[in-house]
């Protein structure tokens, strides 16, 4: 179990990432800010999974399932988008 201070720190980091991500989008950097927005989203989601959902202390099986799901999502996006990217 993470202690309370860790959870609060994670919360502050999440809010900071939200702020930066929104600010970056307002700069209108075109596809650059899109990439940054997604990176910030992945970081935030990772923080929630790792600390709030305490996967950090989860068993190997849980980590395998969580990681496996991400891989299958990558398959869907990678192979699927590959069609439009190469048309």
């Amino acid at each position: 179990m993470p202690n309370r201070m860790t959870l609060v720190a994670v919360w502050l980091v999440l809010l900071a990432l939200l702020g930066i991500s929104t600010w970056v989008a307002l700069l209108r950097l075109g596809s650059w800010h899109a990439a940054l927005n997604l990176i910030f989203a992945v970081a935030s989601a990772g923080a929630v999974v790792w600390f709030d959902m305490h996967l950090r202390k989860g068993s190997g099986t849980l980590k395998l399932f969580a990681g496996g799901t991400v891989i299958f999502l990558f398959i869907m996006f990678g192979f699927g988008l590959a069609d439009w990217l190469t048309r």
């Binding site: 192979f79 590959a82 069609d83 439009w84 990217l85 190469t86 048309r87």
Partner: peptide
């Protein structure tokens, strides 16, 4: 109507 390159990989 899928891209031929995607078709090749699949």
């Amino acid at each position: 109507g899928e891209s031929v390159y995607a078709g090749l990989v699949f």
